[in-house]
Amino acid sequence: MPNYRRARVPGATYFFTVNLRDRTSDLLIHEIELLRETVRATKARHPFHIDAWVVLPEHMHCLWTLPPDDADFSLRWKVIKFAFSKRLPVSEALSASQQHRRERGIWQRRYWEHLIRDERDYQRHFDYIHYNPLKHGHVQRLVDWPYSSFHRAIAMGIYAPDWCGVPEQIDGGYGE
């Protein structure tokens, strides 16, 4: 098995892509309130700042900034995934390995994480997150996708409501 190494920098900002195991599922938007509750509860116990987030039917992207003395994003993802899964009825097929480990078959085991390097890197990922519903054909206008921090960014004056970006500059294939 490969030796995965994650960059752990206290107080840093990270980009994440987290996928469901079943990439044809719409579980994340079907259970959006449960996901939101789970994230709120996790933030209350293990603080972090959500810079940007988009939830699509079967995957999500987000930017988090951790507290200055903390680099443990994996604990937060473990808590979010576990708490979300625990509150859903068991309906997915489980492999022998998952049964042995007492895992659910909802999430892909790993996730994509990227340490944000500078302001340009931050902006590229911030735009990519918000462009994603359009990229995947879920809407014609980003303002029509309800599961995104795009609406908060409009309220903050970061984007105009009709912002849609330029695909060649935004679509970098981050973690998908």
Rank of each mutant, 00 (worst) to 15 (best):
R6A: 06
V9Y: 14
T13N: 12
Y14H: 07
Y14S: 10
F16W: 13
F16L: 14
T17H: 06
T17K: 11
V18K: 13
R21V: 12
D22A: 15
R23A: 12
T24G: 07
L28R: 12
H30V: 02
L34H: 01
T38Y: 06
T42K: 07
T42G: 11
K43D: 05
R45F: 02
P47F: 07
W53A: 06
M60E: 14
C62H: 14
P67E: 13
P67N: 12
P67T: 09
P68F: 14
K81N: 05
R87V: 03
R87G: 02
V90W: 12
A96K: 12
E103R: 02
I106M: 03
H114L: 05
I116A: 11
E119Y: 05
D121N: 15
Q123F: 08
R124W: 10
Y128N: 10
H130R: 05
N132D: 07
P133L: 04
L134S: 04
V139Y: 00
V139R: 06
R141Q: 08
L142P: 01
D144W: 00
W145M: 09
W145V: 07
W145I: 06
F150H: 07
H151E: 10
R152P: 11
A153H: 13
I154L: 08
A160H: 11
G165I: 08
V166G: 07
E168K: 13
E168G: 11
I170W: 04
G175S: 09
